[in-house]
Design a protein around this nucleic acid. Sequence first.
DNA 1: GCCCCTTTGAAGAAC
DNA 2: GTTCTTCAAAGGGGC
Length: 374
Amino acid sequence: MHPLTPLITYSNEHFSPGTPPSHLSPEILDPKTGIPRTPHPSELSPYYPLSPGAMGQIPHPLGWLVPQQGQHMYPITGGFRHPYPALAMNASMSSLVSSRFSPHIVHHPHGLHQTGIPHPAIVSPAIKQEPNGELSPAAQAKSPGPNKKEDERKPHIKKPLNAFMLYMKEMRAKVVAECTLKESAAINQILGRRWHSLSREEQAKYYELARKERQLHSQLYPGWSARDNYGKRKKRKRDNKTDSTAEDFSMRNKKPCMQYLPQEKMIDSPGSSHGSMLDSPATPSAALASPAAPAPTHSEQAQPLSLTTKPDRQHHYPVLAKPPSSSSSSSSSSSPLPFSSLHASLLSPPSPYHHSHHALYQSQPLSLVTKSAD
DNA sequence: GCCCCTTTGAAGAAC
DNA sequence: GTTCTTCAAAGGGGC
């Protein structure tokens, strides 16, 4: 049984493109109009199926995502962690999500909900601060921007995890166990390939979870914007990624995973690795498509034949996913390369689903993935 | 101790 | 409208 199964009570029939499931429709609660209907947390997300009274008795619905470390979706750095405390919201949540106040106002200074329980998405300003909540001198010195004071007061509300991140959280432990790898960069490479090897149905589950997560996040923090977190990290350089390909990384691995490494060793010549898998009829069965992850377009299905190298890491929309406005862009830079020289079983975890269409994607050779010349 | 690496996806900024 | 950038998680490694 798939670990998600207990959480996913909805079926794929909810994934009619363009028509979000009714239980996810904005009419559940419109923060702007303040429609009075109080959504039960279970309506908002599979992460919130519990009644408040059940808190503390029933494991966190996302426990499967973080079974190994007992962590939670949005850990509160600074010591206190709680399993998605939004679960505790019922009436308070209603008032919270309907509030027009910004999250900074809604939430208590230290990331506490009105319930007194911090939401896991909130990382209080105590991030890298002293336990008492005051910024350490170092943190103060490093606080970017002129609004240090304001920044101190603002709880750090993290971005909701996307589908792949949810998948990573679940699968990381498995990969680590199988490969004895610990370097996250290497693990993530494996997970990235596994992600592509997932069946549509399996990916759809994660997309749906991620979508609900986003929806709930937006309802919990109506005023939150991803931009709020800009600058929280030091600007990361992207240029180096060009040179640091997976191939390089795999060579650096001191503890190679035999289960996955061979596939990379099989990559000898990019030019000789195209074709065989492309014979698979790309079953667009695409009927299965979540609103967040519509079926691929014709151009996308045709693209795997392209020999163009992966220009960059952006917008690599998976089989299910398609950018909202990428009808044209999807045909160029974002199509993964076929990786026909590898057997799917080497890349994929055992899965009952292996649509041929996936085969086009699951075999993306990281060693062949290069960024376009600058 | 901080940042990089590495992955995909979402969102915002920039053009 | 398209492209680019940043941040989500994770933990070893480098400086």
